[in-house]
């Protein structure tokens, strides 16, 4: 069994042309395009990129280089022009330097971005590799931050404040042990019993506790900030005085339209009465309001995704390839 399925590009697989000859031609074309792009990038790297201006100008042969400056205990990213300026003043300076971890990071991010975008061509091993990386990394990230923020500070810090302060969290303010912290620890241990087939029933108690707390918490939050607050806005005055007659008419009309919209949409969601007669008419108007809401949401979603895509393209062309410089980073 192949450890990386999909490497052979089986004709007839989803996204692949049924005809093997067509599939081969498509593969060759894609490889040729990638080769031309790679050759152009190599040529550009050989020519180099000029950073800085005037007498401070320096040529950098490479992409994605990140320059940093020592500030306090760590480093802060600075524009490449600042490095050029520092080198022009003192070629042996150590104040502004290349950050190799960040430079490797920009390359890794760029290659992973391209790996994910390759899915637009078709599902392929490079995409699957990026997908596997993000699954593992996300799980590890969430788990380690949860351990530090909740377990260390709220459990270990309360059970053994001295040890925790000395070895794990010097900023801990607790000084005396609070044995009530054994309760969440015990609940957590019981939760781990779900991993065992024989003892998984024990895990239902902490689960019930988590569900109960969450539902009670949400109950209060939703009733207070969503239900009551939203209903309260319906009692705002319908007559909205403005500086001009047009503003007054416009504001009042908007207020009336909002009230009518809320009531008609609620009528649509009210299923205890049959949607006939006046209720049916109101529900129909409610559907129109809902459609306008969904249309606006759709437009916003598309806009948001396109903005994200633009940000990724900007990263590739600015941070990695140095072809553009809208933020003056170089």
């Amino acid at each position: 069994m192949s450890q990386f399925p999909g490497t052979s590009g089986t004709p007839g697989a989803p996204g692949m042309p049924a005809d093997p000859a067509v599939a081969r031609r498509a593969n060759r074309l894609m490889i040729a395009v990638l080769a031309v792009i790679a050759a152009l990038l190599v040529v550009r790297a050989w020519v180099g990129t000029e950073v800085g201006s005037g007498a401070d100008a320096q040529v950098v042969h490479g992409y994605g280089m990140v320059f940093v400056e020592q500030q306090g205990a760590g480093h802060v990213q600075v524009p490449a022009a600042e490095w050029a300026q520092a080198v022009a003043a003192d070629p042996a300076q150590q104040r502004v330097m290349v950050s190799w971890p960040r430079t490797v990071g920009v390359w890794a991010a760029a290659l992973l971005t391209l790996a994910v975008l390759s899915f637009l061509w078709r599902d392929n091993p490079v995409y699957k590799l990026a997908e596997s990386v993000v699954v593992g990394v996300s799980a590890g990230y969430v788990m380690s931050t949860a351990v530090w923020s909740s377990l260390v500070n709220q459990v270990f810090g309360k059970l053994a404040p001295g040890l925790t302060k000395a070895y794990l969290s010097p900023g801990l303010t607790t000084t005396e042990s609070d044995w009530w912290a054994l309760v969440p620890l015990g609940l957590g241990m019981l939760l781990l019993c779900r991993l065992s087939a024989r003892l998984s029933w024990v895990g239902m108690f902490p689960l019930a506790f988590v569900v109960g707390v969450f539902s009670g918490w949400r109950f209060v939050q939703y009733v207070e900030s969503d239900l009551l607050a939203q209903v309260a806005t319906m009692f705002d005055p319908l007559y909205v005085a403005g500086p001009t007659a047009a503003a007054t008419v416009g504001g009042t009309l908007c207020a009336v339209l909002v009230l009518v919209g809320v009531l008609t949409v609620l009528a649509y969601f009210f299923f205890s009465l049959e949607h006939k007669g006046p209720v049916g008419g109101a529900a129909r108007i409610g559907v129109w309001y809902l459609m306008i809401t969904f249309g606006a949401s759709f437009g916003f979603t598309v806009m948001g995704r396109i903005a994200l895509l633009a940000a990724r393209c900007e990263f590739l062309f600015d941070d990695w390839l140095w072809l553009i410089d809208p933020a003056g980073k170089h």
């Binding site: 799980a139 590890g140 969430v142 788990m143 949860a146 351990v147 923020s149 909740s150 377990l151 709220q154 459990v155 912290a181 309760v183 969440p184 620890l185 609940l187 957590g188 241990m189 939760l191 781990l192 779900r194 991993l195 902490p206 506790f209 988590v210 707390v213 969450f214 918490w217």
Partner: peptide
Amino acid sequence: AEWFNAAAAIAFVLGG
């Protein structure tokens, strides 16, 4: 709420 957060953090261990 603190107990909930701690138990939820251990739930992440379960997920891992």
